[in-house]
């Protein structure tokens, strides 16, 4: 089906993009999540503002303790190692598992996070890696930890006219381990359940995150207990989400177990 009519403006730079968004407009980058909604006419913006060419969003900055990946970096660029991966391959592997290659060639890291589909890969992976979202808006720039950036299904901390410019991924310390596991019925589908586990003792970062819950990723409150095997994953999830039926969490418990195995075995 064809999209309803809209106008399209490609922003020249960040300041230009901010001005265009303040005039009213829906930001778009790779159009891989918004596109289907446009074509199905579930979304009818008056105007699209294309951010995919903004030089500020296409930058990759390597720093001593982190890498800043511009929001308009594509999944394929991360998969292929064209964009620096501070984790030594964890980002590349996650990128390679997103949808299909033809989608990864246009879809962007920032677009995926700002769209905030609860089952999306970057939403859970970046939360698991203790990444930080860098935002620029009318009030200036600010930093938001990923766990506070996604606030619900398709909902983020982005304010009016604010743009996600980059994602800062910390460099893991020596001996750090990582586990990411997702369950999808078919290759390329959105996950039915997912989990990410980071064991980075040198940097003091231990994290167990569960995704594809229909809400923002869940950070379990005793990652050390889970990682050291003192806490049962099923028990931890049931305690964190007491209102959910046990059978609805079964896949997520499995995802968490497998991510834990990958990060500790």
């Amino acid at each position: 089906m064809k999209s309803a009519p809209f106008d399209y403006l490609a922003a020249d730079d960040l300041a230009d993009a901010g001005a265009l968004l303040r005039e009213g407009g829906k930001p778009v980058a790779g159009n891989q999540s918004l596109g289907p909604m446009l074509n199905l006419r579930l979304v009818r913006p008056g105007r699209l503002v294309d951010l995919s060419g903004l030089p500020e969003l296409r930058r990759v900055e390597e720093r001593e303790d982190c890498v800043r990946l511009g929001a308009a970096i594509t999944h394929a660029e991360i998969e292929d190692g064209e964009a620096a991966d501070p984790t030594g391959g964890w980002l590349r592997a996650a990128a390679a598992g997103i949808a299909y290659r033809a989608v990864r060639n246009r879809g962007t890291l920032g677009g995926s996070l700002a769209h905030a589909d609860p089952a999306a890969d970057w939403v859970i992976v970046m939360t698991g890696l203790c990444a930080t979202a860098l935002l620029a808006g009318p009030e200036g720039a600010r930093r938001v930890p990923l766990e506070d950036f996604v606030t619900g299904p398709f909902a983020t901390a982005l304010g009016e006219g604010e743009i996600l410019t980059a994602v800062e991924v910390p460099r893991p310390g020596r001996g750090a381990r990582w586990g990411y596991w997702k369950f999808a019925r078919q290759v390329g589908e959105f996950a039915k359940a997912s989990a990410a586990v980071l064991v980075d003792r040198e940097a003091g970062r231990l994290r167990c995150a569960v995704g594809a819950l229909g809400r923002q990723p869940l950070l379990l409150d005793d990652p050390a207990g889970l990682i050291e095997g003192r806490v049962d994953p099923g028990e931890a999830l049931r305690r964190a989400l007491p209102e959910r039926a046990v059978e609805d969490l079964a896949l997520h418990v499995t995802a968490l177990r497998r991510a834990l195995e990958a990060a500790t075995a």
Partner: peptide, 16 residues
């Protein structure tokens, strides 16, 4: 990075 021309006239219409 390629310069991309804008559409002729900006949308007067707000999001429908």
């Amino acid at each position: 990075r390629r310069p991309r021309p804008r559409t002729e006239k900006p949308a007067a219409e707000a999001t429908r």
